[in-house]
């Protein structure tokens, strides 16, 4: 009994390491094939003929039809951030409340708006693209495209890739505007803070560097999101259940990718923000 327990304890670290590696292997191979897929997409962007019509239709599908979702989510999330920061700042005494607008807007610019818009677009558009491409793959329409002599990558993936990457950038700007409005409105309606007082501290606390940070993040998230959703869509098999599984796995992978990239950028920014802020202050931007 004791010997078996001892054996078990002795083997435990090795078992854990083995399980970790068996779990890690498929993840690493998935990341590798996604990077290869991304490189192929980048190469086939520049191949003629360009699918202008499909690209414009995808811009409409991705961008214009996501506007209500982004507006609704942005308004309420801006209000939530404002309420929570109001509570947090009221812990430091009444004097700290004058910074509410600046802190809320800076947080929205740097973190909340890019992540929120990317998650909403992942749920709305990324899942839709995965479902569409997976349906085409399952019903063998992708093979039909290839039979007709067209490259499925250039014909199907490139317009979606470009449309998602461009539209996330634009929708982030839109979401940012509406979230700032939502934060100011909730501060005015729920806590009785004046609108001019709210906007007064924004200029001093939300620098151009924060906007650059957020916009760079939104571009990066767009590239990640479109790569993941197109890859998951084109690598599907097994009927209508396979389509559901592909959508699910696309959502999970893009959520993890977005938060991982966000953490890496936040860490880099926290290492370099003093240098960057002093540089921009020096340049008087």
């Amino acid at each position: 009994m004791i010997k078996r327990l001892f054996n078990y304890l002795w083997q435990l670290p090795f078992m854990v390491t083995g399980h970790l590696f068996t779990w890690l292997g498929p993840v690493i191979s998935e990341i590798g094939s996604m990077s290869l897929f991304f490189w192929q997409v980048i190469k086939s962007i520049f191949h003629r003929p360009f699918e202008v019509r499909e690209f414009i239709i995808q811009l409409y599908q991705v961008g214009v039809r996501s506007i209500p979702v982004v507006l609704l989510a942005g308004l309420f999330v801006g209000a939530i951030v404002s309420i929570q920061f109001h509570y947090a700042l009221s812990q430091f005494g009444a004097g700290a409340l004058q910074y509410l607008g600046g802190v809320t807007t800076s947080g929205l610019l740097r973190e909340v708006a890019p992540v929120l818009v990317s998650v909403m677009i992942a749920a709305r558009v990324g899942a839709y693209i995965t479902a569409e491409l997976a349906t085409m793959k399952v019903t063998e329409q992708v093979d039909a495209v290839r039979c007709l002599g067209a490259d499925p990558l250039r014909f199907l993936v490139v317009p979606r890739f470009l449309a998602v990457t461009i539209m996330i950038f634009i929708l982030t700007i839109l979401g940012l505007i509406i979230a700032t409005a939502g934060g100011a409105l909730s501060a005015y309606l729920l806590t009785g803070m004046g609108i001019s007082k709210y906007f007064a501290s924004i200029r001093s606390l939300a620098a151009a560097w924060a906007l650059f940070n957020g916009m760079f993040k939104s571009l990066l998230f767009g590239v990640l999101l479109s790569t993941v959703s197109c890859y998951k869509g084109l690598n599907t098999d097994g009927g209508s259940e396979g389509v559901g599984r592909a959508v699910n796995s696309c959502l999970v992978t893009s959520a993890i990718a977005i938060f991982l990239a966000d953490y890496i950028i936040a860490r880099l920014a926290s290492l370099t923000f003093e240098v960057a802020e002093s540089f921009l202050f020096f340049m008087e931007i």
Binding site: V69, L72, A73, F76, V77, I80, V119, M120, A123, R124, A127, Y128, T130, A131, E132, A134, T135, V138, T139, G239, S240, V243, G244, V247, N248, L251
Partner: peptide
């Protein structure tokens, strides 16, 4: 409506759920 309907329903479900959660 087949495999396409399943994908469509999944997308709508996730978006609606997240919006209701936020509100």
């Amino acid at each position: 409506g087949g495999a396409r309907g399943v994908g469509d329903a999944t997308t709508r479900a996730v978006v609606t759920a997240i919006l209701i959660i936020i509100v």
